[in-house]
Amino acid sequence: MMDWTALRLSLSLAGWTVFILLPLAIIAARFLAFNRPRGKNVIEALIALPLVLPPTVFGYYLLVAFGPHHWLGNGYQALFGRTFAFSFEGLLAASLLMNIPFAVQPLQRAFEAIPANVREAAWCSGLSRWRTFRQIEMPLAWPGLAGAAALTFSHTLGEFGVVLMVGGNIPGETKTIAISIYDRVQAFDDVAAGKMAALLLLISFLTVAVVFMLAEKRHDS
């Protein structure tokens, strides 16, 4: 049987992750693309870390940080009266951190691809930095933005290890579709697992395809 609650939760988690992370990623990516801050390599390595770290290791550290014995988890509990780990908010925080490279890297490459003199031509044409960002940089970085959104969204939908470590398996709160598929397989319910896996595959494919199509269209126009 299809776990609609888990699917809704996954879509909501992916949507919120994209919504919150992309604006921050634009700022970070743009800064890294157009500046050479001291320790840029270290910053870039930190951003790429979630790509190479095993999800269980990353999830473990987050679980510790979000737990009641750490100031972060403790502070959250004191404020909201519930644990940060094993909550949707905790899951969202983990998802945001996990997806940093997927959001930042395509955007950074896209901003880096804008020739310096195109931005300078905009300034010399009288465009303020903000107008240059809106009317020149963002339209040119649009394929990178689309790529970042697609990768972040579909990666969040499919994330398993970190979700299991930080969120556990609480229906309606932290049980995502990926966890639900795992549950169904454990219970030998291959039909439900198969259906959900196919649906997840379809959603992921459609997300990537639509976003890339939009990027291509915008690029051609």
Partner: peptide, 14 residues
């Protein structure tokens, strides 16, 4: 208020 023609023109490609 400078008009600047760049070497490779730097037109806005989009």
């Amino acid at each position: 208020r400078v008009g600047y023609v760049f070497q490779d023109y730097a037109l806005f490609p989009h």
